[in-house]
Amino acid sequence: MNFEKYIKEVSDSNVSSLNENIFLEKLHSERRRRDSNKLRLFNGLSAGVCVLLFSFITFSQLADDPIVYVSNDLKSLESMDIETETYVYELADYLVETSDDIWETLAFLDEINFETVIINENGGLE
Protein backbone atom coordinates (compact mmCIF):
# COMPACT_ATOMS: atom_id res chain seq x y z
CA MET A 1 0.00 0.00 0.00
CA ASN A 2 1.17 3.50 -0.82
CA PHE A 3 2.76 4.88 2.34
CA GLU A 4 1.28 8.38 1.91
CA LYS A 5 -2.17 6.84 1.65
CA TYR A 6 -1.45 4.84 4.78
CA ILE A 7 -0.50 7.89 6.86
CA LYS A 8 -3.55 9.79 5.63
CA GLU A 9 -5.78 6.89 6.69
CA VAL A 10 -4.10 6.66 10.06
CA SER A 11 -4.31 10.38 10.73
CA ASP A 12 -7.98 10.60 9.75
CA SER A 13 -10.25 10.91 12.70
CA ASN A 14 -13.79 12.02 13.19
CA VAL A 15 -13.80 15.60 14.29
CA SER A 16 -16.59 16.00 16.76
CA SER A 17 -18.10 19.47 16.68
CA LEU A 18 -17.39 21.87 19.48
CA ASN A 19 -19.98 24.18 20.99
CA GLU A 20 -18.71 27.60 19.92
CA ASN A 21 -20.46 29.56 22.66
CA ILE A 22 -19.18 27.34 25.46
CA PHE A 23 -15.72 27.46 23.90
CA LEU A 24 -15.81 31.27 23.81
CA GLU A 25 -17.02 31.44 27.40
CA LYS A 26 -14.15 29.20 28.55
CA LEU A 27 -11.70 31.12 26.37
CA HIS A 28 -12.54 34.49 27.89
CA SER A 29 -12.64 33.23 31.47
CA GLU A 30 -9.23 31.57 31.02
CA ARG A 31 -7.89 34.73 29.38
CA ARG A 32 -9.13 36.86 32.30
CA ARG A 33 -7.70 34.38 34.80
CA ARG A 34 -4.25 34.55 33.13
CA ASP A 35 -4.41 38.35 32.96
CA SER A 36 -5.28 38.62 36.64
CA ASN A 37 -2.47 36.18 37.53
CA LYS A 38 -0.06 38.27 35.51
CA LEU A 39 -1.28 41.47 37.19
CA ARG A 40 -0.92 39.86 40.62
CA LEU A 41 2.62 38.76 39.78
CA PHE A 42 3.46 42.26 38.52
CA ASN A 43 2.03 43.88 41.66
CA GLY A 44 3.95 41.43 43.85
CA LEU A 45 7.17 42.19 42.01
CA SER A 46 6.60 45.95 42.22
CA ALA A 47 5.92 45.71 45.96
CA GLY A 48 9.07 43.60 46.35
CA VAL A 49 11.15 46.15 44.47
CA CYS A 50 9.72 48.99 46.61
CA VAL A 51 10.51 47.11 49.83
CA LEU A 52 14.04 46.37 48.62
CA LEU A 53 14.59 49.98 47.59
CA PHE A 54 13.25 51.29 50.90
CA SER A 55 15.40 48.79 52.82
CA PHE A 56 18.47 49.78 50.85
CA ILE A 57 17.89 53.49 51.45
CA THR A 58 17.30 52.90 55.16
CA PHE A 59 20.35 50.69 55.43
CA SER A 60 22.55 53.14 53.58
CA GLN A 61 21.41 55.91 55.96
CA LEU A 62 22.07 53.78 59.03
CA ALA A 63 25.36 52.64 57.64
CA ASP A 64 26.82 56.17 57.80
CA ASP A 65 30.09 56.12 59.74
CA PRO A 66 29.08 55.91 63.44
CA ILE A 67 32.36 57.60 64.44
CA VAL A 68 30.88 60.85 63.13
CA TYR A 69 28.30 60.73 65.93
CA VAL A 70 30.66 59.41 68.60
CA SER A 71 33.46 61.88 67.95
CA ASN A 72 31.29 64.88 67.35
CA ASP A 73 32.52 66.67 70.45
CA LEU A 74 36.16 65.95 69.52
CA LYS A 75 35.97 67.52 66.05
CA SER A 76 38.87 69.83 65.24
CA LEU A 77 38.17 73.45 66.06
CA GLU A 78 38.42 74.58 62.45
CA SER A 79 35.19 72.84 61.61
CA MET A 80 33.25 74.05 64.67
CA ASP A 81 30.88 76.97 64.67
CA ILE A 82 31.84 80.10 66.60
CA GLU A 83 29.59 79.39 69.56
CA THR A 84 30.98 75.88 70.06
CA GLU A 85 34.52 77.14 69.56
CA THR A 86 34.08 79.76 72.29
CA TYR A 87 32.57 77.17 74.55
CA VAL A 88 35.51 74.79 74.02
CA TYR A 89 38.04 77.58 74.71
CA GLU A 90 36.22 78.55 77.87
CA LEU A 91 36.05 74.92 78.92
CA ALA A 92 39.79 74.51 78.32
CA ASP A 93 40.55 77.69 80.31
CA TYR A 94 38.30 76.50 83.11
CA LEU A 95 39.98 73.09 83.20
CA VAL A 96 43.47 74.64 83.32
CA GLU A 97 42.54 77.21 85.94
CA THR A 98 40.71 74.86 88.27
CA SER A 99 43.05 71.96 87.86
CA ASP A 100 44.93 70.63 90.88
CA ASP A 101 47.29 68.76 88.62
CA ILE A 102 48.13 70.88 85.57
CA TRP A 103 49.99 67.99 83.88
CA GLU A 104 47.01 65.75 84.14
CA THR A 105 44.87 68.47 82.55
CA LEU A 106 47.42 69.00 79.78
CA ALA A 107 47.55 65.27 79.19
CA PHE A 108 43.76 65.31 78.85
CA LEU A 109 43.85 68.25 76.42
CA ASP A 110 46.56 66.45 74.49
CA GLU A 111 44.36 63.37 74.37
CA ILE A 112 41.55 65.32 72.71
CA ASN A 113 44.03 67.00 70.32
CA PHE A 114 43.64 70.41 71.87
CA GLU A 115 47.31 71.15 72.15
CA THR A 116 47.81 72.67 68.69
CA VAL A 117 44.92 75.03 69.19
CA ILE A 118 46.15 76.07 72.60
CA ILE A 119 49.59 76.74 71.22
CA ASN A 120 48.28 78.51 68.12
CA GLU A 121 45.64 80.59 69.84
CA ASN A 122 47.24 81.36 73.18
CA GLY A 123 50.89 81.17 72.35
CA GLY A 124 51.29 78.13 74.52
CA LEU A 125 50.63 77.48 78.16
CA GLU A 126 53.11 78.96 80.45
Binding site: V15, S17, L18, E20, F23, L24, L27
Partner: peptide
Protein backbone atom coordinates in the same frame (compact mmCIF):
# COMPACT_ATOMS: atom_id res chain seq x y z
CA UNK B 1 -13.01 32.74 16.66
CA UNK B 2 -16.30 31.16 15.58
CA UNK B 3 -15.23 31.38 11.96
CA UNK B 4 -11.84 29.73 12.43
CA UNK B 5 -12.58 27.39 15.33
CA UNK B 6 -13.60 24.32 13.28
CA UNK B 7 -10.36 24.40 11.25
CA UNK B 8 -8.15 25.02 14.27
CA UNK B 9 -9.86 22.45 16.44
Amino acid sequence: VKRHLPDTY
